[in-house]
Design a protein around this nucleic acid. Structure first.
Lengths: 123, 123
DNA sequence: GAATAATATTCGAAAGATCGAATATTAATG
DNA sequence: CATTAATATTCGATCTTTCGAATATTATTC
């Protein structure tokens, strides 16, 4: 059964709701961890742990920018697999967090969202 | 994360080498357990346990015919998902057990393989 | 350079998956 | 009806995954 090692490893990476949510959230391009924390309503450590699994699987990579760390998908060819599964299981395809993440851009203090905040004064 | 329940359940079903092998073996149509046992070189109980997982997931169903129980895929729409993963992970697609199972037909005593064996005399 | 913000890592307990061994079930045969 | 062939189920040990709590790391700011 050695021949199935690779395929099943990747299925294992896709096997958790939080990891599917992360991959969906990254459809729009890179996101910092704080975005996912807010969009999913999950604890920071929890998300970080699942990001580690995806990183170890070679599906995502990170990039630091000041305080924030941005994650991106490095093998977008994984999306056809996910989309095939969504079709199979009758879920609407695409990114269910799209609107949520877009609205985060208003208030998020991370440099990607609000590059000019450097000089902003808070009350 | 409730929304990912269904998708991840199915990924979980695909997550094991033996279960992938079973689904590949069933591409050619229904097979009895003895075929998979011979083709995979795995113990009977092991295969049976994984068949149970696939059955509980609603992917396969069984049918008895005399002594043998034949399994078949009841949701072949799962194959596009598997094929997408094979493409992703660089595996050749299709059923790697095709030749093996075909050759089993020569010697297998199950009714599907040799429907006329009823009257066959052994030494 | 001490404090802080964002994120990562470690640890430990609980839950789940795997797998072999043993046993149970079911239908066919004599 | 006892035996047998094919397959299923149960059990128990081991390994893996999950997840919260605590702690560590890294870059920034004052």
């Amino acid at each position: 059964m050695q021949r199935y090692q690779s395929q099943t490893q990747y299925f294992k990476a896709l096997m958790h709701p939080t990891r599917m949510a992360i991959l969906d959230a990254l459809r729009e391009g890179e996101q910092c961890v704080c975005h996912m924390e807010a969009a999913f309503g999950l604890r920071q450590a929890h998300i970080s742990q699942h990001l580690m699994v995806l990183r170890d699987a070679g599906l995502v990579a990170d990039r630091r920018e000041g305080w924030n760390i941005f994650y991106r998908v490095v093998r977008p060819e994984i999306y056809p697999v996910i989309d095939a599964m969504k079709a199979f299981s009758g879920e609407p395809d695409g990114n269910p967090f799209e609107a949520e993440i877009r609205s985060l851009r208003q208030t998020c203090p991370c440099p990607k969202c609000n590059p000019d905040d450097k000089d902003t004064e808070y009350s």
